[in-house]
């Protein structure tokens, strides 16, 4: 197997999962560019990969960092994580919306659409926690925020999604 074929095999095996992550983190319009950046960076850094973690995990971390760097470059991180959501959806509204069960079967396409409409801060936390399975401690480390902020943003994201999907 030549090196080009080997790298293509790597791309075929891992790009769908990484494209799912980038689409949900930064939106479809930027996801293709970021996926390219992820694989070009991986190609450049492959000689540093020593097999301590699975290759999928290594690529996933790389993709997460590329997405977060992109989001950071677009504005102040703290404003994204703690400010934007609160201004548009106050906690009182969340509490007032609690009137028993309102969701039926959640359609994946509807969920993807509602997810894309979330403010960046709580969308990042929701994707990392509920879609990708990271713990709050890990997310707090990645985003550079307190663990409590991660929990609070997740809660707000879920309540907002519940309202959108009801």
């Amino acid at each position: 197997m030549g090196e080009s074929a080997a790298f293509e095999e790597l791309y075929r095996a891992h790009s769908p999962r990484l494209f799912g992550l980038t689409c949900r983190m930064v939106g479809r319009s930027h996801a293709e560019d970021l996926l390219q950046e992820v694989f070009l960076t991986a190609h450049r850094k492959l000689d540093r990969y020593r097999g301590e973690s699975s290759l999928g995990t290594w690529l996933f971390r790389l993709a997460t960092n590329v997405c977060l760097d992109f989001l950071r470059s677009r504005g102040n991180r703290n404003a994204q994580v703690t400010g934007e959501f609160d201004e548009t959806f106050a906690p009182e509204e969340i509490t007032a919306g609690r009137t028993g069960r309102v969701l039926g079967v959640v359609d994946k396409i509807d969920l993807e659409r509602a997810l894309a409409d979330l403010p960046p801060g709580c969308r990042e936390v929701f994707v990392l926690h509920d879609v990708e399975g990271f713990e709050h401690g890990e997310i707090a480390g990645m985003l550079g925020v307190a663990e409590g902020t991660s929990k609070s943003q997740l809660h707000k994201a879920r309540m907002r999604l519940r309202k959108s999907l009801s």
Binding site: C23, A31, E32, L35, T99, L111, E112, G133, R158, R162
Partner: peptide
């Protein structure tokens, strides 16, 4: 009221976990 919210949150969490990979376009 609370039971309904817990059921909704659980349903939402399960739906999020089922969101799968997305195949990128060939030109990427």
């Amino acid at each position: 009221s609370c039971r309904g919210l817990v059921e909704d949150l659980t349903r939402l969490k399960d739906a999020a976990r089922s969101l799968g990979p997305i195949t990128p376009p060939a030109h990427v």
